[in-house]
């Protein structure tokens, strides 16, 4: 049956509980994936920055992971890890790596040599240099990557509906199955809104944390 009504507000209000728990699941799946992705990408990116020879193979592997279609990747994983959060997270994390690693390296590349030399001259150790000079100066570019990774992940979470998770993707999938526009619209509009809010929040956070970068133009995305 094709409902004639474009959006059934009554249905939406009756199902607010479900909508809310889908939003929470969506945010949780995304936050966990981006968090783990960052925890992997930061050390790998720093390593690839210091050992240039490692950069090509690292981005090559991350690039292949990034290229594998999400539905195909979940299909590979389901026989191994089942219809589980683990399956979803392995897939979601793999898609964040290329973007994050590349931006960590690009960010560190963009740190002015003068700043490094000044810090070294002041007696900073390598570790202090990294945490107090290089990473803060690279932050705008790293956050730019974080934004792309987050927005991409929010979109990909909808696909995990096919393996029984999906957050708001569940609404899209069920809506498709029943030709029920209200469910499709709810899932689509809310996930897009979530992506825009996340993008905006990360930008705002970055501006607060790196006040010196406000006047500067961002280098590479």
């Amino acid at each position: 049956m094709i409902a004639d009504q474009l959006f059934d507000w009554g249905w939406a209000i009756d199902h607010l509980d479900e909508v809310w728990s889908a939003v929470v699941e969506h945010v949780a799946l995304t936050a966990l994936a981006v968090g783990i992705g960052m925890a992997i990408s930061l050390p790998v990116g720093v390593y690839a920055y210091r050992h240039r020879r490692a950069y090509a193979p690292v981005t090559w592997v991350a690039g292949i992971l990034y290229t594998i279609p999400s539905l195909a990747l979940f299909a590979f994983l389901v026989p191994l890890t089942g219809l589980s959060y683990l399956t979803a997270e392995i897939g979601l994390v793999s898609y964040t790596l290329l973007i994050l690693i590349r931006n960590v390296v690009a960010g560190l590349d963009g740190v002015p040599q003068d700043a490094r030399e000044a810090a070294t001259g002041m007696g900073y150790t390598d570790r202090q240099l990294l945490w107090r000079v290089e990473l803060p100066l690279a932050a705008p570019v790293i956050v730019a990557g974080l934004r792309i990774a987050t927005v991409t992940t929010i979109g990909l979470v909808t696909v995990t509906a096919l393996i029984g998770l999906g957050g708001l993707g569940i609404f899209i999938l069920r809506g498709l199955g029943r030709f029920f526009n209200t469910m499709i619209l709810l899932g689509a509009v809310l996930s897009a809104a979530l992506a825009l809010v996340a993008d905006w929040a990360l930008t705002a956070a970055q501006r607060q944390l790196t006040p010196w970068a406000r006047r500067q133009r961002t280098v590479v995305g």
């Binding site: 929010i154 979109g155 899209i172 899932g187 689509a188």
Partner: peptide, 21 residues
Amino acid sequence: GNLGRAIPSFAILALALPVTI
């Protein structure tokens, strides 16, 4: 560019369906 990234393609696919029908 930003909006295109924000809207999941799965959602666009699902939204296009009622329109084309």
